[in-house]
Amino acid sequence: MISKNLTAASTKPIILGVLKQGKSYGYLIIKKIKELSGGNMEWSDGMLYPVLHRLEKEKLIKSEWMISDDSRPRKYYEITELGKEALSVEKAQWTKVNSVLDQIWSVEPSN
């Protein structure tokens, strides 16, 4: 199980990352994250929405209601150019953290 703090910190890059693959709506985004984490990230579904709304306010993503004939109307979110930039920044940071951790853990303890 991944801790709450880490989950919260990674929400932003994860959502942006999901949306970079194509526009999507709330329920589908949650579903995707759950699949990817193999159920190891503890999310309450509802907490996704304030984050989505905040990202939208920050202009990283944009949304629109889409109505199709065969399903419910759904609010689709789409990543913006600004969002893509933010994502690459996040990516660089997480990679950095990752490489630091990698190096530390690959070093054998000296006597």
Binding site: S44, D45, G46, M47, Y49, P50, V51, H53, R54, K57
Partner: peptide, 15 residues
């Protein structure tokens, strides 16, 4: 699975 509503509302209120 959706979770508690009040903490969610607090988050949203900040927005």
């Amino acid at each position: 699975s959706f979770g508690e509503i009040p903490p969610m509302a607090d988050e949203e209120f900040l927005n």
